Amino acid sequence: MRRQEVERARYECDLARRRYMQVDPDNRLVADSLEAEWNEKLRAHEQANDRYQKQRADDAAGLTIKQRADIMSLAMDFPRLWNDPRTPNRERKRMARLLITDVTLLKGAEITAQIRFNGGTTHTLHLGLPKQSWELHQTPSAVVELVDQLLEHHADAEVAQQLNGQGMQSGWGHEFNQSIVRRIREQYHLQSRYERLRARGLLTKQEIAERLNVQPDTIKKWRRAGLLRAHPFTGRGECLFEIPDATSPVKHRHQGKRAALSAASKVSSNRSGV
């Protein structure tokens, strides 16, 4: 503030001098008035400068030898002072103003910052363009790859559980759920669990029922009994079935087996009753 006062007084002094130098010498009344104003501004400038120098001397006298050494050490180690958490932002701004004359920014495929320091040195920085909001919250590529791998064996809800179990988070920092996994699939064009199973040739319940010439309800019973190999594609128990082969059940064959087992069970119970 003292230095600014000196600068302002010097400016007013120079302005008064220019006015005096431009006056017509024959106009003594105006010339005398402007000369008096110039002298007044000169005295104001000298007084402001004296106060400034006195304040500087007082500030310097108030510092111990150790404090002066610490200040000089900080001045020689600019990064440490700048990164010190105890340095307030207003002081960092003052430091930047003392060091930097101006900065020119050029925006193209990247941002080019041309910095001119007070000592005459220049430095050029090449910076990437700031990311847009959607890019800041974009799902990490590692997560997308893992989702693609997990979909080979799991439905959307199960994939979300697997990701949460590994401590992963979405681009917005949230835990995964079925809806988020589905959005990732759609955004990155990943095949669903159902599409992957169908690509492997697996059949729906209706299709395998037609292959085995039975009702869809029979297929459901056979699956529960473990007679058919099924692969779930949702968390609601919906499945696709492997293509029937020689080991697949045949219509009415298992009914006879169940009847024989039932009859044998009745005979055994009758004998135990006797």
Rank of each mutant, 00 (worst) to 15 (best):
residue 7 E to C: 02
residue 7 E to R: 03
residue 10 R to S: 08
residue 12 E to V: 04
residue 12 E to D: 09
residue 14 D to G: 10
residue 15 L to G: 00
residue 15 L to Y: 09
residue 18 R to H: 08
residue 20 Y to W: 09
residue 25 P to K: 02
residue 28 R to I: 01
residue 31 A to C: 01
residue 34 L to T: 04
residue 37 E to A: 01
residue 43 R to G: 06
residue 44 A to T: 02
residue 46 E to N: 08
residue 46 E to Y: 08
residue 51 R to G: 10
residue 55 Q to A: 15
residue 55 Q to F: 11
residue 58 D to S: 09
residue 65 I to L: 15
residue 65 I to H: 14
residue 67 Q to I: 06
residue 68 R to L: 14
residue 68 R to F: 09
residue 69 A to W: 12
residue 72 M to D: 12
residue 76 M to D: 14
residue 77 D to K: 10
residue 80 R to S: 15
residue 90 R to H: 13
residue 90 R to E: 15
residue 92 R to D: 04
residue 97 R to S: 14
residue 101 T to Y: 11
residue 102 D to M: 07
residue 105 L to N: 00
residue 106 L to E: 15
residue 108 G to R: 03
residue 110 E to F: 08
residue 112 T to D: 07
residue 116 R to M: 11
residue 116 R to V: 10
residue 117 F to G: 05
residue 119 G to I: 08
residue 121 T to M: 13
residue 121 T to W: 10
residue 121 T to K: 14
residue 121 T to D: 14
residue 123 H to P: 00
residue 124 T to G: 03
residue 124 T to N: 04
residue 125 L to S: 04
residue 131 K to H: 07
residue 131 K to C: 01
residue 132 Q to G: 11
residue 132 Q to A: 10
residue 140 P to H: 03
residue 140 P to W: 04
residue 141 S to T: 12
residue 143 V to T: 09
residue 148 D to I: 00
residue 149 Q to D: 06
residue 150 L to G: 03
residue 151 L to E: 04
residue 154 H to V: 00
residue 158 E to Q: 07
residue 167 G to A: 05
residue 169 Q to V: 12
residue 170 S to Q: 02
residue 172 W to F: 13
residue 175 E to N: 13
residue 179 S to L: 13
residue 185 R to H: 06
residue 189 H to Q: 13
residue 189 H to Y: 09
residue 192 S to W: 02
residue 192 S to A: 05
residue 195 E to R: 07
residue 196 R to L: 06
residue 197 L to Q: 04
residue 197 L to K: 02
residue 197 L to P: 04
residue 201 G to E: 02
residue 204 T to R: 05
residue 205 K to I: 09
residue 212 L to M: 07
residue 215 Q to F: 08
residue 218 T to D: 03
residue 222 W to C: 03
residue 225 A to S: 02
residue 228 L to N: 03
residue 229 R to T: 14
residue 230 A to T: 01
residue 231 H to R: 08
residue 232 P to T: 05
residue 233 F to K: 05
residue 233 F to V: 03
residue 236 R to I: 00
residue 238 E to Q: 15
residue 240 L to A: 02
residue 240 L to I: 01
residue 244 P to H: 05
residue 246 A to P: 00
residue 247 T to R: 14
residue 248 S to N: 06
residue 259 A to Y: 11
residue 259 A to F: 11
residue 265 S to V: 00
residue 266 K to D: 12
residue 266 K to M: 11
residue 267 V to L: 13
residue 267 V to T: 11
residue 270 N to R: 13
residue 270 N to D: 12
residue 271 R to Q: 12
residue 271 R to P: 00
residue 272 S to E: 14
